[in-house]
């Protein structure tokens, strides 16, 4: 474990917590893409499938984190599609998730480290996570604005994988550890946030709201 991965995971936890708090406190999921949250839930379940296969005996931090990620993302989907369904902005959350899931699944079957079920599920999860934020960014471009709290959520969510890139550089240099698939997907994922990062740093930090077109 290094400082970059630690802060990356903390940033990821913060993002999940910020979104849950926003929906719970405002009792509304306006401005939140349910599809993105569904895709994240699929990512966690397919990536941590080992939790379900081998009974989780020893509870170490990593297993607890995996359980938190899975339960929090499923609970967030429950809030969006059931509890606060009336506030879900289905009209603007209109990016076709199939256009993200099918290519990720196809690519996972073509480009992977080992052609076995668990490894392909892990690879699918990595590829899907890289593009999972697109419905959320699409929704913001359709509505033309993002609530400040949603911007903080996106900043934490984007920062998590950006910090992982620093973690991978660190591990390459000190541990000669390379996980090419995760690195390439992580770079793509972080690039997708660049436009938002620019808006966040030039606007939200100054107390303004993000309104598109910028």
């Amino acid at each position: 474990m290094n400082i970059f991965r630690l802060f990356g995971d903390l940033s990821h936890l913060a993002a999940i917590a910020i979104l849950l708090l926003k929906i719970w406190k405002t009792r509304s999921c306006a401005g939140v893409s349910g599809k993105t949250q569904l895709l994240f839930a699929v990512c966690f379940i397919t990536r941590y499938i080992d939790l379900f296969l081998h009974f989780v005996s020893l509870y170490n931090t990593e297993k607890v984190m995996k359980l938190i990620y899975i339960s929090a993302s499923v609970f967030t989907c429950y809030l969006i599609f059931f509890k606060f369904k009336a506030t879900y902005d289905g009209n603007h959350d209109s990016m076709r998730a199939e256009f993200l899931i099918v290519p990720a699944a196809g690519l996972a079957c073509l480009i992977n480290t080992k052609f076995d079920a668990i490894e392909i599920l892990w690879t699918f999860s990595i590829y899907l996570e890289a593009v999972a934020i697109l419905p959320q960014l699409f929704l913001i471009s359709k509505t033309g604005e993002a609530e400040t709290i949603t911007s903080h959520y996106l900043f934490a969510q984007g920062s998590y994988r950006a910090l992982y890139i620093l973690n991978w550089i660190y591990r390459y240099h000190y541990e000669s550890h390379v996980d090419t698939i995760a690195i390439v997907a992580g770079v793509v994922q972080t690039i997708l946030y660049c436009d938002f990062f620019y808006l966040y740093i030039t606007k939200v930090v100054k107390g303004q709201k993000i309104v598109l077109p910028a």
Partner: peptide, 10 residues
């Protein structure tokens, strides 16, 4: 660079 077979990251 050794390929990490077991993915040890979240």
């Amino acid at each position: 660079s050794n390929k990490s077979l077991a993915h040890d990251e979240l």
